[in-house]
């Protein structure tokens, strides 16, 4: 990195007042928008590294307990509606596509297209969370919410009931944490819809939308793993 900085330093030395008319969104501590873009993207990936380890802890504990109670895990996953889960997976991947298209729109300075794609991302995310809420309401009605409200009995094999409760702890914990990330994403989307509509982004400056995209795609990746692990465990395995 240091040689890059030196290179730009030399370039600007011949032009001491270059910063006087810089891009309105160029922070004063960066040489230029390219350096700012690289720094902010790298920073976002550093944050995502902590997120990978955070969700990794969930997947780790999930695997340890699944190994202890494989039959209960299979019964718990079998109880999920895999068709609803499939539809939601398609909806969420669709929202990732619209998010990627929004970044493309920002890069090519298509103001209306970018705004439209961000709104579409928000709508698809909303559908996903609506479906999730519908699933939660069914689980709660069936007495599958862990703790003192857990009244579910697995009639086929009552000995699995407590293991299923443990599975539901992971189900609600992991999907709940995933849903919380989506709610935070909604806040970010609303903010960026306003900025995109205002025309803040273009060929030179689109880093915030790019980073918003990184966040949204990360949340999508978490779901890509949650879906098979919570809905599609085969009873034979």
């Amino acid at each position: 990195m240091s040689d890059v900085t030196l290179h730009h330093g030399a370039e600007h030395a011949a032009e001491p007042h270059a910063h006087a008319h810089h891009h309105p969104f160029l922070q004063h501590h960066f040489e230029d928008l390219g350096q700012q873009h690289e720094a902010s993207t790298l920073g976002m990936w550093m944050f995502l590294a902590t997120e990978i380890l955070f969700f990794g802890g969930f997947f780790l504990a999930y695997t340890v307990y699944r190994n202890m109670y494989p039959e209960a895990w299979a019964a718990g996953a079998h109880h999920q509606n895999w068709m609803v889960g499939t539809i939601n997976t398609i909806v969420l991947i669709g929202s990732s596509l619209s998010m990627a298209l929004a970044v493309y729109g920002a890069q090519t300075a298509k103001r209306k297209f970018t705004t439209l794609m961000l709104v579409l991302t928000l709508l698809l995310g909303g559908v996903f969370l609506g479906v999730k809420a519908y699933e939660y309401s069914i689980h709660i009605e069936e007495g599958l919410f862990p703790g003192s409200h857990f009244t579910y009995v697995h009639h086929a094999d009552p000995s699995l009931t407590r293991g299923i409760e443990l599975f539901m702890v992971f189900y609600f914990g992991m999907t709940g944490m995933h849903a919380l990330h989506m709610v935070i994403g909604f806040g970010l989307l609303l903010y960026f819809i306003r900025r995109a509509w205002r025309g803040d982004f273009g060929e030179e400056y689109y880093s915030p939308i790019e980073i918003m995209g990184l966040y949204w795609h990360f949340v999508d990746i978490v779901w890509i793993f949650l879906f098979p692990l919570l809905y599609l465990i085969h009873g034979g395995a």
Partner: peptide
């Protein structure tokens, strides 16, 4: 041109749709 714009490769729309289609197939 003031300073450098971020380096971006014209992300091709085709690639996005191909990836989306592949993700659907894998789902």
């Amino acid at each position: 041109h003031v300073g450098h714009a971020p380096a971006h490769h014209e992300a091709s729309l085709t690639a996005y749709f191909v990836v989306f289609f592949a993700l659907m197939v894998f789902t």
